[in-house]
Amino acid sequence: MNAIITVVGKDRVGIIAAICVKLAEFNINVLDISQTILHGSFTMVMAVDIAQANTAFNKVAEGLKELGEDMGLSIHIQREEIFDAMHTI
């Protein structure tokens, strides 16, 4: 089962590293990463596989949110289906 992680905020050293460490703790595999600077803010979209995750989805979401708060970023994880539903026919 895939999910999409979005990260928006001010660019700094170590954002990807910190998020990947957190994901490794949850045993979540990163499938794809794309990042850009949009209207001056760092914007990253990650596709991840949560099928083998060792933690419940709500705890993963909470963990990432806390990490985001520590780093001054907004981090969200959502199941991929919502984007599929909205943007594909």
Binding site: I4, T6, H76, H87
Partner: peptide
């Protein structure tokens, strides 16, 4: 992977 622009528009 789904288009990044679409993903960000959903978030917005």
């Amino acid at each position: 992977m789904i288009n990044q622009k679409d993903i960000l528009s959903t978030i917005q």
